[in-house]
Write a protein that binds this DNA or RNA. Sequence first.
DNA 1: CGTGTGGGTATTGTATACAAAACGCGCTCG
DNA 2: CGAGCGCGTTTTGTATACAATACCCACACG
Lengths: 227, 227
Amino acid sequence: MSRASERAYAAIRAHVLGGSVAAGDQLTEDQLAQITGVSRTPVREAVRRLEDELLLVRSDTNRLFVADWSRDDIEEMFVLRQMLECHAAERAAKRLSREQIAALEALNRELTAAVEQSPPDVARFLEANRAFHEAIIDAAHSPRLRQLLARLVEAPVVLRTARTYSQDDLRQSARDHDELVAAFAARDADWARAVMGSHLRRAFHTFARAVGPKTEGAANDRDGAEP
Amino acid sequence: MSRASERAYAAIRAHVLGGSVAAGDQLTEDQLAQITGVSRTPVREAVRRLEDELLLVRSDTNRLFVADWSRDDIEEMFVLRQMLECHAAERAAKRLSREQIAALEALNRELTAAVEQSPPDVARFLEANRAFHEAIIDAAHSPRLRQLLARLVEAPVVLRTARTYSQDDLRQSARDHDELVAAFAARDADWARAVMGSHLRRAFHTFARAVGPKTEGAANDRDGAEP
DNA sequence: CGTGTGGGTATTGTATACAAAACGCGCTCG
DNA sequence: CGAGCGCGTTTTGTATACAATACCCACACG
């Protein structure tokens, strides 16, 4: 993507995730153009991407708002991600080359190093984790699958929870990745799928624990515009 | 979406699917602006959507081409659709109201009528079929799932194969839908999932039979730009 | 009171002009 | 002969002005 619209994308994303605006707030293209320092044209392009990723939503009359995710929304995203990424692991197990498996091992060594620092370097962990999962998705060799997952992977992770992981949580992640590599080395697609499944499902529960208990009723149905 | 960019979207889509251009051909924004009769701004918006749907692809230097799907690409889309739509059926089974189930029955009566005409009215069938599947996805009550499926559902169906269905194929579809409705009425999520799975997998084989035998090697890997 | 209607303001949508980047092609120089 | 360079042309990217639409508030009318 081109320079200005990429910059706008990153800036707006940071602005929204950084918490300078609250969920449900309205944003205007002019405002965002000022913040990002580019004109409305690339801003509109960036906004489209962020809508795709569901960080921003439009009202029925095309006004723009910061999305407001319920806990149920987030659980559903984890479920979908699990479904798709298990499939990716299965395909990857059949396709990874010896070199690619070695690369995964290296990534997980990096991840482990980040975890075993004291204190653990969460940013470094997250980057290694992202790279690890991305490598698997790449190896699945399915552009569609990659595209679908792109919308699901970053968003929940980034949702303020990053710093709530305990060192034990992080260590367990590293162990899961080790087992995943073992499954790949054995070319055992079923094993890979199962490990990926428990890995992601545990991630959901870690997340859920951090975010608080399940909401009573109030599963917000259709579009989530302002309050 | 707004008028001009919607018009552009429909026109470009028709232009590509109508076969006025070959897979792999380059398109330019100016060209498309002329064809659609709007300026490049809404054309660019429309093109983004079509890129998302993978009908168009960009080269590494942002030139625009008509996508060229291999048989393997299409099989993978069916697999993904099956995975997601089975999930939708499962969720729908738990959520459909009595009225919604009645609505599905009505849609399938319409579909059956289209099939039992002689000759069968394929366009009418496709429309009823689309509405039936959409109603299920709606009932699953997951905006993310809906969004992901939107990219997978229309595209392969539309790919010239529509007219290759035999009357038996169409009848079997209608029967599948009947069974799906029965599963919903029984609130049996496992049954619904299983029926949806076989329904879509059979659709793939019908498609595959029409399109010809499996290709030997040559699974096109990365982006599918021109020859 | 409540409802709806008007018009000024805010916001999004489209066209167009210009800037930046990529392509193609002929040329030079090893 | 072939690889690399320069430069005009094509194509995409960005800014900006203007058009269309939605919003908001005040006021009239039932």
